[in-house]
């Protein structure tokens, strides 16, 4: 067993155990923090596969933005009811059945994909010897996919503007005691 395998097994364990812990921990804050551990390991796994861009995205978007949002929501709404054991395991029968179905489907899909893997060789349109993945992605993003990139920016801008507009209206309603 060489170092590669060792790292892979460590990362796989580091993703599986926090995943299980996230599901079975009754405190929602703990669950979210376990998911954070999971995501960091996932990012490292992507790095070992040679996709440093996805690593960066994983950490910035998931660990940085999405989980903070989750934590925010967990603090904002009251989840005390969910923490009681009776409520927590009430529908476990249905859950177990669903888990079996999903595991079955998962193995089916994996077997199909494993048959495809030798045939599937992604052909990169660029040369990795010249520059790294990240550099090439940046170059493509700002030349070839410029319009799409800018459009995503416009969408985000519109969402922010619309949200501010709605909040302004909401404040007016509060002032007028509608």
């Amino acid at each position: 067993m060489d170092l590669n395998h060792l790292v892979f097994y460590y990362l796989a364990l580091g993703m599986t155990i926090p995943g299980i812990l996230a599901v079975i921990s009754r405190n929602p804050v703990h669950a979210v923090l376990w998911v954070l551990v999971l995501i960091l390991h996932q990012a490292l796994l992507l790095y070992t596969l040679g996709s440093e861009f996805l690593t960066a995205i994983q950490i910035i978007v998931y660990a940085g933005a999405v989980l903070v949002l989750f934590l925010f929501i967990v603090y904002m709404i009251n989840l005390r009811l969910e923490e009681r054991w009776k409520v927590f395991v009430r529908r476990s029968g249905i859950g177990l059945i669903l888990i079996f179905i999903f595991v079955f489907l998962l193995f089916k899909t994996i077997s199909v994909f494993l048959a495809l893997v030798p045939a599937f060789k992604p052909k990169l349109p660029y040369d990795l010897a010249q520059a790294s993945n990240l550099v090439w992605i940046a170059r493509y993003l700002f030349t070839h996919y410029l319009l799409q990139f800018e459009l995503i920016g416009v969408i985000l801008l519109i969402v922010v503007l619309g949200a501010v507009f709605i909040l302004k209206k909401l404040q007016e309603v509060k002032n007028d005691s509608f």
Binding site: Q148, L151, F165
Partner: peptide
């Protein structure tokens, strides 16, 4: 398809806000 998808989203996202403003 990517541009088509972004256009589709751009068409409907402002409308979500316009519907929500009617809560006045």
């Amino acid at each position: 398809f990517l541009t088509l998808f972004l256009g589709l989203e751009l068409t409907s996202i402002p409308i979500y806000f316009l519907i929500a403003t009617n809560f006045l």
